[in-house]
Amino acid sequence: MYSKLSNSRNIEMKKNEVPQDKSNLESANIKEMYYAVDENGEYTTELSTGWDPKTIALDNAIKDIEERTEIAKQKVLNNTTSPIEYYMELHKMDVGILASYVGMWAWRVKRHFKPSVFKKLNKKILQKYADIFEITVEQLKDIHK
């Protein structure tokens, strides 16, 4: 009753069809659990080492963050943003998440991206950011440290 798509497998996810592709799960000794049917059509579980369509999506997401971090780094070096933006990207955060960690409004965090504003930030606020990024204030001020 189902129209077959170009790359459909035989109907129903079978236990022996649970993907065992290579992924970084292995390095952390994790296998994820799938639900699949056995030869009698009974549902059971099977562990999987990974699945390429997902691994590619994950890899791309990481690449995207690396790109964002690199762009932020260049902006810091060109003095068009403060190191806060760089560390934010490095920690896979966005403004909303960072604002939630420092307990400030997002607009205030964004303002701290301005190099001129960043330069005038007091020790207490700098320390707050440094603590969240788990670095020293010196490292916060200079991304090469």
Binding site: M13, M33, Y34, Y35, Y43, K54, A57, N60, A61
Partner: peptide
């Protein structure tokens, strides 16, 4: 567009879904 599409697939096949966006767990 590709970044968005990738996120949909990740949500669907994230650890914990049991595969197929929880549809197999529901089958069980």
């Amino acid at each position: 567009a590709n970044h968005y599409l990738g996120q949909i697939v990740r949500m669907q096949e994230e650890i914990g879904t049991g595969g197929g966006g929880f549809r197999y767990i529901y089958g069980a």
